[in-house]
Design a protein around this nucleic acid. Sequence first.
DNA 1: ATTAAAGTTTAGTCTTGTCTAAAAGTATTG
DNA 2: CAATACTTTTAGACAAGACTAAACTTTAAT
Lengths: 218, 218
Amino acid sequence: MHSVSEENYIKAIFHLQDGKMLVSTNEIAGRMNTKASSVTDMLKKLSDKKLAEYIPYKGARLTENGVRCANQIIRKHRLWEVFLVEKLDFSWDEVHEIAEQLEHIQSQKLIDQLDKHLDFPKKDPHGDPIPDSNGNYEVINKTLLSQLKKGDKGTLVGVIDTSSNFLNYLDKHSIQLGTQIEVLEREDFDNSFTLQVNAKSLQVSQQIADNLYLKITS
Amino acid sequence: MHSVSEENYIKAIFHLQDGKMLVSTNEIAGRMNTKASSVTDMLKKLSDKKLAEYIPYKGARLTENGVRCANQIIRKHRLWEVFLVEKLDFSWDEVHEIAEQLEHIQSQKLIDQLDKHLDFPKKDPHGDPIPDSNGNYEVINKTLLSQLKKGDKGTLVGVIDTSSNFLNYLDKHSIQLGTQIEVLEREDFDNSFTLQVNAKSLQVSQQIADNLYLKITS
DNA sequence: ATTAAAGTTTAGTCTTGTCTAAAAGTATTG
DNA sequence: CAATACTTTTAGACAAGACTAAACTTTAAT
Ligand SMILES: [Mn+2]
Ligand SMILES: [Mn+2]
Ligand SMILES: [Mn+2]
Ligand SMILES: [Mn+2]
């Protein structure tokens, strides 16, 4: 159907266009580690295929078809991540790169059976929702840690960065999905936080607070 | 490491070179559905990478390195086939094409964990042996049905053709791995056979007899 | 309103893998 | 052993996807 490269661009645009009207060439290039000129070429192709609307010098966004396509790739990515963690004993920091390959395997039956084998999971190992075969998914009520005030409390329900580096850092401090987190202090000048986690206090930088989603409990 | 295309050529050469000194350009082109000129190009590349020895106008064969590489691809292919049948309820005629894609996923840990998850299977759904991580595998004692004489009996232990067409034909007659087969009659002029299978008699052409491996029991 | 800076596209090149048509090598056979 | 058939390689082209350098647009700043 679509090439691996096309699929990776579709997925990148989907993630970048959240909220925004148009996604810029440079944003896409940044996320995909390619050059702007390569992005321009691909935007023309996706536009020809009616997967994206592309306005030169302005940016692009996915069409309905493009969104449908993106959701199917994301569905595959996240189901494979669940498989790797649940069935093959991978930890949550090891699965992203492999899923990045597996998401491009073409077989409708494969993904349907995998979904069934995993007992129709609703979330992946990083707390992200898994679209069903129609592209629908549960919206999870969540707030970025970096937007909380002193005294706010919550449960970790998602991470944005799924790199080994970041997830290993969380593991080191026994932070996982479901962990209770309270904001003890917030430094305004550098946006760093002092948290109460696992009965200990922990200093975290803004960069970390920007990558943790909590479900507020008070 | 190696591209998908290179891996597919390596696998094709491996299967073709069994016994033979050298595999010809045309044999490879035939198996891969490409043109001879494309094969020549690839043989030069594999030769540069020390994966094959290539003698222009004569043919090619894999080096030790090439064989090692082929065995790892075959290991992945067959483990994925077992996974699809054992865990995802695929039938043996549906798995080959999907495994053809999955065999190119790059992750040593993935394949080790998959092997463990499947409880270290020794054979794939078509009766073919699965190499271990060192490339070693059990040699199975087997004879082509087409080489049997009247009165010979055996158990089905393997198939050569793994296309849906052929495997569906076997399913239609309830023939699977382990099925008892006896040669009731053999027609010399067209090499067709009359078999005793599942308490019924069955006429099969040479083409079918050429694709079934039996373990002789008398 | 100019000019400078930043962002984007175009033009041209490269690599991988494929193809066709033509040339060259090998095998067959009378 | 020469003519013919078959196989294989070469030469040249193409498509996908990437890159660099140059040109062009848009935005920001004087
Ligand atoms: Mn990917
Ligand atoms: Mn994930
Ligand atoms: Mn393959
Ligand atoms: Mn098989």
